[in-house]
């Protein structure tokens, strides 16, 4: 089973088919595989990520995950998909400032009723967060917050892990460490990784790379 995008088109208000933010985007991503999406600012990378995360709707085409067609889903079903099948690591982390690190990591899994203390514990160890679990996000560095966000996203054991510029706020060394961790974790757990990045170096480390230009996938 896999993530499949077939001729997906997305227009914002006032856009035509020619000026659509995404035009006929198609791709295929198997479990355990990783895909880097690159492109200029405004090329539609984040929009595509939001569509895959079922945060937004598209105008034409189809997205399916494990056979579930997005176009047929109600708002509640889309929420259920986000709960159980898709996790997203935001560029700005979006941690809950009023929850400690361990509560933040457990949150998504608890919402999905998939909380597994052992698994969370493993993630905390592997991501080097052991000493930080009682802290609040405001007391963490950018790299630490990013690792907490990754742990939260993986704690739910998603089918697809989406990451929007996950190293955008990190220095080179931290970026490399975070990418290594993500790749290790998704390979170990048969999770597909769909990563948006500006960095060619990071893109080169993933299984495949797609480039978006003016809303279209270009070779």
């Amino acid at each position: 089973m896999a993530l499949i995008l077939n001729s997906v088109t997305k227009r914002f208000a006032g856009q035509t088919d020619q000026t659509a933010v995404l035009k006929d985007v198609s791709l295929h991503l198997d479990p355990g595989a990783s895909l880097a999406l690159t492109g200029e600012s405004g090329s539609g990378k984040s929009t595509l990520l939001h569509l895959v995360a079922a945060l937004d709707t598209f105008d034409h085409g189809e997205i399916s995950l494990n056979g579930t067609r997005y176009s047929t889903l109600s708002e509640n079903a889309r929420a259920a998909l986000r709960r159980r099948n898709v996790s997203i690591v935001f560029q700005q982390f979006n941690l809950i400032p009023s929850l400690t690190v361990d509560a933040n990591i457990a949150l998504h899994a608890r919402i999905a009723n998939r909380y597994d203390a052992q698994w969370c514990d493993q993630l905390i160890t592997r991501l080097g967060l052991r000493d930080l679990i009682a802290r609040y996000p405001e007391n963490l560095s950018g790299g630490q917050q990013q690792r907490v966000a990754i742990a939260r996203a993986l704690a739910v054991r998603p089918d697809v892990l989406l990451a929007d510029e996950p190293t955008g706020n990190l220095d080179e060394q931290s970026s490399s460490e975070v990418i290594d961790l993500m790749l290790d974790l998704v390979r170990d757990h048969e999770t597909a990784l769909f990563l948006v990045t500006h960095s060619s170096e990071i893109a080169a480390r993933l299984d495949r790379r797609l480039h978006l230009q003016h809303g279209r996938v270009v070779p």
Binding site: A53, N76, A79, A80, R82, I96, P97, I111
Partner: peptide, 15 residues
């Protein structure tokens, strides 16, 4: 707002 948005992203149904 941020918290509410994040919870929705994490799949908490809007109702």
């Amino acid at each position: 707002r941020g918290l509410i948005r994040t919870l929705r992203c994490l799949g908490v149904p809007f109702p």
